[in-house]
Amino acid sequence: MQPQPGNPYAQAPQYGPAVPVPAAGGRGGGAGKAVLWAAVGAVVASAAWAGGVFLIGGKGDSADLRGYKAPADMCSGGDYSSFKSEYPQDDGSPTKNTLKNPAMDESYCSLALKKTGSTYADAYLTMQLDLHRKTNPGPEFTATWKNYGDSHTGYDASPVSGIGDEAYLVSQDTTGSSSSGSGSRYATLAVRDGWVTYEMTYSAYLTSYDQDKNPPSLSNVTGWLKKDAAATLGKLKG
């Protein structure tokens, strides 16, 4: 999922359910065995998903999921405590959804951040965890985020050490380019740990601010993203 600063409440992508297809069998009932194993797998998957947390991985899996669990509710499962001092009001109706698919499990949350006394959102925060169960996301992740500044005009992209196998910070600040006090501040921290990816995005639009409600500096925001992303991944890793 790539940054979409113009659409802070964008829904996470949805996918149709995958239907298992038994491998073509030769003589001796190979196809029948494939159908049997598919049925057994469906029963096990149903049991694992009966709880509030989706348990991913296990012996025999080729995916390097490292014990991560995708929460049923990312808004409560993720950590964004660093933003609370600036935006203490809770969002009463956050946008959240989950996806369970043989190829990927996903948990997503989008929050309106509000300062004290605000009726409307002063900024927005999204969190998304993807557990890639069939395909290694590494090459595409690196190509997308490491080179984001080259493929998107006006954005800065830099590597971040100490979080996962690799992480990149993408940011943009246009508040200084206008004398009218308009513009935006935007930052995404994208992390890959094995076959698991996590993205945390902050965006603020100055047209929505009163004079006494200036947004935090971009350096503060990026520090909060790093701290809370590390806390979230630690919390969700078994």
Score class of each variant (00 low, 15 high):
Gln2Met: 07
Gln4Ser: 09
Pro5Val: 09
Ala10Pro: 00
Ala12Ser: 11
Pro13Asn: 12
Gly16Asn: 04
Gly16Leu: 03
Gly16Asp: 06
Ala18Leu: 09
Pro20Thr: 00
Ala23Leu: 15
Ala24Glu: 04
Ala24Val: 15
Gly26Phe: 15
Gly29Met: 06
Gly32Trp: 08
Gly32Lys: 09
Val35Pro: 02
Leu36Cys: 02
Ala38Leu: 06
Gly41Glu: 14
Gly41Met: 13
Val43Glu: 09
Ser46Asp: 14
Ser46Glu: 14
Ala48Met: 03
Trp49Ala: 15
Trp49Ile: 07
Phe54Asp: 03
Ile56Lys: 10
Gly58Phe: 14
Asp61Asn: 01
Asp61Cys: 02
Ser62Gly: 13
Arg66Met: 12
Gly67Ile: 02
Tyr68Ser: 10
Ala70Cys: 15
Ala72Phe: 04
Ala72His: 10
Gly78Arg: 09
Asp79Ala: 11
Ser81Gln: 14
Lys84Ile: 00
Gln89Ala: 12
Gly92Lys: 10
Asn97Arg: 03
Lys100Val: 13
Met104Ser: 10
Met104Arg: 15
Glu106Arg: 07
Ala112Leu: 10
Ala112Arg: 14
Leu113Glu: 00
Lys114Gln: 09
Lys114Cys: 05
Lys115Thr: 14
Thr116Lys: 09
Thr116Gly: 09
Thr119Met: 05
Thr119Leu: 07
Thr119Ala: 12
Thr126Tyr: 03
Asp130Pro: 00
Leu131Pro: 03
His132Gln: 12
Lys134Val: 13
Gly138Pro: 01
Glu140Cys: 04
Ala143Asp: 13
Ala143Thr: 12
Thr144His: 10
Thr144Leu: 12
Asp156Val: 07
Ala157Met: 15
Val160Leu: 04
Val160Phe: 07
Val160Tyr: 01
Ser161Pro: 10
Ser161Glu: 14
Ile163Asp: 00
Asp165Arg: 06
Leu169Lys: 04
Val170Glu: 12
Ser178Cys: 02
Ser179Ile: 14
Ser180Cys: 01
Gly181Ile: 03
Ala190Gly: 11
Gly194Ile: 13
Trp195Gly: 11
Met200Ile: 01
Ala204Tyr: 03
Ser208Met: 13
Asn214Thr: 14
Pro215Tyr: 08
Ser217His: 05
Leu218Asp: 00
Ser219Gln: 08
Thr222His: 07
Lys226Tyr: 08
Ala229Met: 07
Ala231Gln: 02
Thr232Cys: 08
Lys235Gln: 11
Gly238Val: 06
